[in-house]
């Protein structure tokens, strides 16, 4: 009896060990520079600074150093936190409300009648999504706008408004089915 069970367990154990070894040899280890890049790849690249870092990449580097937590990115929300937790092998955290709350994708538009052409928003925009020149009306390239809202505080005439992102950026999706009873 025990011989039989022991034999079977040994065989299975060997199989699993072999499997694990094969899997381990397949994935090379990564350095910490690579880690920051991997983290950066999971961030939404809104460059909004709500994480209190200068952009997504600096936040990624702070996380890689252990100087920031993974729950500081409101645009990424739960999904980003989950993927970061998975990447780093830590427990997911709830989004820290100090940094803001997750909201549907949005973009900004400039009220072109009100715009005085001060160029402050152009300088604030982290992804060069606003075009215009001094004393000329400015406009937002909607497709490039991340909805970071960094252009709003500098605007002296308060002519920038947040609107839902156009449909292409949040197309119809199959909703999750109703949950199964258990």
């Amino acid at each position: 009896m025990f011989t039989a069970i022991a034999m079977a367990v040994l065989v299975l154990g060997a199989l699993m060990a072999a499997r694990v070894l094969v899997a381990a040899s397949a994935s090379p280890p990564r350095g910490s520079h690579g880690l920051a890049a991997d983290i950066d790849r999971l961030l939404p690249q809104t460059q909004c600074g709500r994480c209190l870092h200068a952009g997504c990449r600096p936040y990624a580097e702070a996380i890689a150093r252990g100087a920031a937590r993974i729950n500081q990115c409101p645009p990424g929300g739960e999904a980003t936190i989950r993927r970061l937790a998975q990447l780093l092998g830590v427990e997911p955290l709830a989004l820290n409300p100090r940094h803001g709350r997750q909201a549907p994708a949005s973009v900004v538009i400039i009220d072109e009648e009100a715009c005085i052409g001060c160029t402050r928003c152009i300088q604030a925009c982290p992804v060069d999504a606003i075009v215009g020149a001094a004393r000329q009306m400015h406009t937002v390239i909607t497709a490039e706008c991340t909805g970071c809202e960094l252009c709003i505080p500098p605007c002296p005439v308060d002519c920038i408004a947040v609107v839902p992102a156009p449909a292409a950026q949040h197309a119809w999706q199959w909703p999750a089915p109703g949950r199964v009873s258990a």
Binding site: M1, T3, A4, A8, L12, M16
Partner: peptide, 29 residues
């Protein structure tokens, strides 16, 4: 296979239960 081994070399009246349980553990693998 394990049923026969347990019946022949084991301590219990029959081997089916332990054989099934053992292989249940291996099912995901």
């Amino acid at each position: 296979a394990v049923v026969v081994l347990i019946r022949r070399f084991g301590q219990y009246p029959d081997g089916v239960a332990f054989a099934v349980l053992l292989m249940n553990a291996a099912a995901p693998l």
